[in-house]
Design a protein around this nucleic acid. Structure first.
Length: 264
DNA sequence: TTCCATGTTCCGCA
DNA sequence: TTGCGGAACATGGA
């Protein structure tokens, strides 16, 4: 689930619940969830601090600390946040808990241990270390810079869209949605697309992500015409009614309409 | 039981 | 040297 729109929802949730509260203690159940720093160091850096803001970059969520540095969160393939009273049961697969002085706690959930938590002293440097391109919704990523970043790439357009070094935030589901709305076959070679076509894809990308982020990534609230509600072998194209098909692109399942999304 | 899953990272190959 | 594609990683549901 967690692609850019989902993480945007987590960001709003964190903003609404957990900012400017003193962290009495932090507990991490599984050391494998912490990357880059030791589990003890993570807990020590969080204790006594407040989360003073949030910043999202692609699928990564950062929360600068009042004591310096920033908490780093990534949710992997399934995860989320849960803010509740200290006595409430923690959700399954809770990996990190911030216990606030106000008697509430924030649980960070990530089922498959592919997510992670860390501490960084410099968000921009962290992004550079992880080879993150500009956030897909950032102001700095205008149409021409998007076209420039994609042009000349050798692989399939879907691979390029999902490449976090090209543009950060797009995953498998939303890549399929964008390609559906842009009427592009997922395996189309980037080199077969001219600047106009890539520019159209930029417009679609921004619209899809903006609309989805507003819904907090909740796929059930996606507009009726969107294909992401219909991933599956028995499903039909919301545009032409034909049967959807799937192929593997870059090892990931791509759902598309063979009639609407012509190759090239 | 086997396969597959919405992500990132690492490695081999062109 | 660089970029691309596949495998590994961990866990649970179909």
């Amino acid at each position: 689930m967690p692609e850019l729109p989902d993480v945007a929802g987590f960001q709003r949730y964190l903003d609404a619940t957990s900012l400017h509260q003193r962290i009495a203690s932090a507990s991490c159940h599984d050391p494998r969830f912490v990357k880059g720093v030791s589990r003890r160091a993570l807990q020590r850096r969080l204790k006594g601090a407040e989360l003073v803001a949030t910043r999202r970059w692609g699928k990564w969520l950062f929360a600068p600390l009042s004591t310096g540095g920033a908490l780093v969160l990534h949710f992997g393939m399934t995860g989320g946040l849960d803010y509740a009273a200290a006595g409430d049961d923690e959700p399954r697969h809770t990996r990190l808990v911030l216990h606030f002085a106000n008697g509430y706690r924030l649980a960070v959930i990530s089922q498959r241990m592919i997510g992670r938590a860390s501490i960084t002293d410099d968000v921009d440097a962290f992004a550079a270390e992880h080879d993150l391109g500009p956030d897909a919704l950032s102001d700095g990523l205008d149409r021409s810079s998007f076209v420039e970043r994609l042009s000349g790439r050798r692989g399939a357009i879907k691979s390029a869209l999902m490449n976090q070094a090209v543009v950060a935030g797009i995953g498998n589901v939303y890549a399929d949605e964008m390609l559906f709305q842009a009427k592009l076959h997922p395996a189309t070679a980037v080199t077969d697309l001219d600047a106009d076509r890539l520019g159209e894809l930029y417009t679609v990308m921004r619209r899809v992500l903006r609309v989805a982020a507003r819904k907090g990534g909740n796929g059930e609230q996606a507009p009726r015409g969107w294909v992401l509600r219909r991933r599956g072998a028995e499903e039909t194209c919301p545009r032409c009614g034909g049967r959807l098909d799937s192929i593997k692109v870059n090892g990931r399942t791509s759902w598309f309409c063979p009639a609407c999304q012509a190759k090239g």
